[in-house]
């Protein structure tokens, strides 16, 4: 990733009494990237975000945003960072436009410019017709879009979105994510997104941090993540062959990237005439494996390459942690 880290967290720790919400978190987020903070509920995602904004004090450690200590100079951080809380609230008896202008004026933007910006942002998030409506009448999705406009009105360098897609219908989610991606790509805004929706994170994030029980377990793009969590087992290829030989197994094992080879017990009742082998590897080896089987004079009945998605990573991690 090019550029300077915009958010630097150093040994950040937050304790509530005996409970450690965030434990020794060290993390860098770079200019212009979309970073996904992924984890189950109660993993400490929101607490981490609050510490980045100086809304709560860390027990120890340091959070630097744009090079500014968020605990000591929260005002300067907050003028550069837009924050969308997971359940954003507006003044229900005021119009959408009023709400936006209020935020803008809290950011020391003069009234006239505030109005211009608010109108153009409402246009951008698709709420232009609802500008004069009271926010009390807004649906959940509209509120969330208004929330995004509210975050953008101060022209931030960084936006932090806490569960931005919670409770929005699929179409709304798609639009919101497209909007976020657009912002990041066209305007170079750094985006930090927290979520427990794996698919959405997978769709738009450049890098992901997996966060469980206050600890950052793994961090990086999808390959990095699976490599860190499973020692590189990112792909699985299942082969249905007419026969199986030790010689073939030896050859497969000697291939680069192969992690493990095993035979899958054939279903006796199915009375299948072939053997199934599962090859776990750190790169896509499907075509090589097929060629190898044919060279051995075996019939290839089936070939099922699978790549791990975030979902699998997530699930496999939790299966693993429950077992241990």
């Amino acid at each position: 990733m090019a550029g300077q880290p915009v958010i630097e967290l150093r040994q950040l720790t937050k304790k509530y009494g005996d409970f450690t919400a965030v434990n020794q978190l060290t993390l860098d987020i770079y200019q212009g990237e979309i970073f996904g903070l992924l984890g189950p509920n109660g993993a400490g995602k929101t607490t981490t975000i609050l510490m980045m904004l100086g809304l709560t004090e860390p027990t120890s450690g340091q959070a630097l945003v744009c090079g500014i200590d968020a605990t000591r100079n929260p005002i300067q951080v907050k003028s550069r960072v837009g924050y969308l809380p997971d359940d954003v609230g507006f003044y229900d008896d005021r119009t959408a436009l009023d709400n936006l202008i209020y935020t803008a004026r809290l950011n020391r933007i003069p009234l006239r410019e505030a109005t211009e910006r608010a109108l153009s942002l409402l246009e951008r998030v698709g709420l232009a017709e609802a500008a004069e409506k009271n926010v009390g009448e807004f649906s959940r999705g509209m509120r969330q879009r208004l929330g995004l406009a509210d975050v953008l009105i101060k022209r931030p360098e960084v936006i932090i979105l806490d569960e931005p897609t919670l409770g929005i219908d699929p179409e709304g989610v798609r639009e919101l994510l497209a909007l976020i991606r657009d912002l990041s790509r066209k305007e170079g805004i750094t985006v930090l997104l927290s979520s427990h929706h794996l698919h959405q994170v997978q769709q738009i994030c450049d890098r992901v941090g997996l966060f469980v029980k206050g600890r950052l377990l793994a961090c990086g793009d999808m390959n990095d993540l699976s490599r860190q969590l499973f020692g590189g087992a990112t792909h699985t290829v299942e082969l249905d062959l007419s026969a199986w030989s030790d010689e073939l197994e030896q050859r497969i094992r000697s291939l680069e990237h192969v992690v493990s080879v095993e035979r899958v017990e054939a279903d006796a009742l199915a009375g299948s005439s072939y053997v199934t082998a599962r090859v776990v590897c750190s790169d896509d080896l499907a075509s090589q494996l097929a060629r190898m089987a044919l060279e051995h004079g075996l019939e290839l009945y089936g070939l099922r390459p699978t790549k791990y998605g975030l979902d699998d990573i997530y699930h496999r991690y939790f299966e693993g942690s429950e077992a241990s």
Binding site: L53, L55, I75, Q76, K78, S79, V81, Y83, P85, D87, V88, G89, F90, Y91, D92, T103, L106, N107, R108, D150, K154
Partner: peptide, 11 residues
């Protein structure tokens, strides 16, 4: 109403 966190996250 959730407006406190929104206002306080402004500078």
């Amino acid at each position: 109403k959730g407006t406190l966190s929104r206002v306080i996250s402004q500078p």
